[in-house]
Nucleic acid binder design. Sequence first.
DNA 1: TCCCTATTTTAGGCAAGACTAATTTGTTTC
DNA 2: GAAACAAATTAGTCTTGCCTAAAATAGGGA
Lengths: 241, 241
Amino acid sequence: MAQTIQEPSARLSPSTEDYLKAIYKLEEGDPVPTKALAGELEIAAASVTGMTKRLAERGLIEREPYKGATLTDAGTKVALEVIRHHRLLELYLKEEIGHSWEELHEEAERLEHHISEAFEDRLDELLDHPTRDPHGHPIPTRSGEVEETATQRLADLEDGDRAVVGHLSDKNPALLEHLEECGLMPGASLEVTEAQEVTEAQEVAEAQAFEEPIAVRVEGGEPQLVGRVVARSVFVFLAAS
Amino acid sequence: MAQTIQEPSARLSPSTEDYLKAIYKLEEGDPVPTKALAGELEIAAASVTGMTKRLAERGLIEREPYKGATLTDAGTKVALEVIRHHRLLELYLKEEIGHSWEELHEEAERLEHHISEAFEDRLDELLDHPTRDPHGHPIPTRSGEVEETATQRLADLEDGDRAVVGHLSDKNPALLEHLEECGLMPGASLEVTEAQEVTEAQEVAEAQAFEEPIAVRVEGGEPQLVGRVVARSVFVFLAAS
DNA sequence: TCCCTATTTTAGGCAAGACTAATTTGTTTC
DNA sequence: GAAACAAATTAGTCTTGCCTAAAATAGGGA
Ligand SMILES: [Mn+2]
Ligand SMILES: [Mn+2]
Ligand SMILES: [Mn+2]
Ligand SMILES: [Mn+2]
């Protein structure tokens, strides 16, 4: 019970930060169950029980046995700081260092725990105070504000819909390569067209790779077919019709 | 005894890497005593005994009880890799990110353990395959070659000696600031002059800060007085007279 | 209401890396 | 050669984070 408040200078462990980040990602109003957290972190459930107890003692989360974990304000603050590090790093590694989609995530996943606040600030300046990472995820501000995120999937749009790409799933690097070639990058405007407008050769190729394609025209380009699996990993802001 | 050889892919812990680096730094032919290592790492001697045993089991060092530790070839390779990371990072942070002398060392000390080989290669390219870090320390090549290091101190030169600055002690950031103002940076050519050539006002100022100054003229500049303490932290290559 | 099952927690272990206190060893000195 | 002292090692603990196996619990379905 005696929730130990320690000096803020003490660096939290990478493990601690990853737990808080994972809870932040999974919580949507209600508490995150042990098993969900275990899945996200690829760790045994029993280990999560132990760790979350310690996090609760430190005042970073609230824990309801058999229910799940919720971030406290302190915990949320840490999570957002780590996410800010992660996303600034990803953008930096992509833009300035030239890392591939493949390398981006892993490198940022490690470095996010080890850069100083001064480094964070330098990156922010150097990148001209960016608001989105290369996947289109919002970069939290230093004070913890987060921009809105798209919830609609490209795969769920209908003929004639116009939209702007918000963000892309970052699960699969190969898919990101593909999307880059298609011009389906965050910020791109697009329109869902009729399937007929697409050439047959392309149709065959796409159909082999990914079933049930959707026809899309990215602004300034030709109409093209995009596989449903692919289109499901593209999140868009639907334009008011 | 059964010295476990493990797959090279397994990342070594920061702690392990710091031990190897410290042994590399302290060994000069003969084994590094427990106490010396404990001092360098700011860790209790008993802890060092325990850790060095484990390092020996892993084949990274050789350990002679009551004598000390020596790096094996495998251990040396790791030490040089970490040092390469450290020095590339220091240069990068100074040149591209704009870190201060103060921030340089600490940041590099952490990040050296966490960057990927791909990142290392990118830094190397971006910096145009540098051979020296901001302090003038040689950057080991990927294959583990290390350039020669200066051993003579500016403080020990005599009137009329000419020399080129090799490297600077990296203990004290404030001192590095001072040296930068004096133009005493790695690569600078200099000449030790007669004390009389220096103005009296400067003499007084310098004498207050650091006793028993030495008179130095850096190429392209005016003669100036440099405190003995300061001059002791500047290592030079003496020019053949 | 009772039982089944998935989830969660408890119990017990382990490795890494640190600590302090006690003991041993090596070395120097008289 | 014994005593004294410094250095090193051993012994015993601690914390963090992970594991597996066993026990407990919550909640839905019969
Ligand atoms: Mn991480
Ligand atoms: Mn991202
Ligand atoms: Mn280090
Ligand atoms: Mn250096």
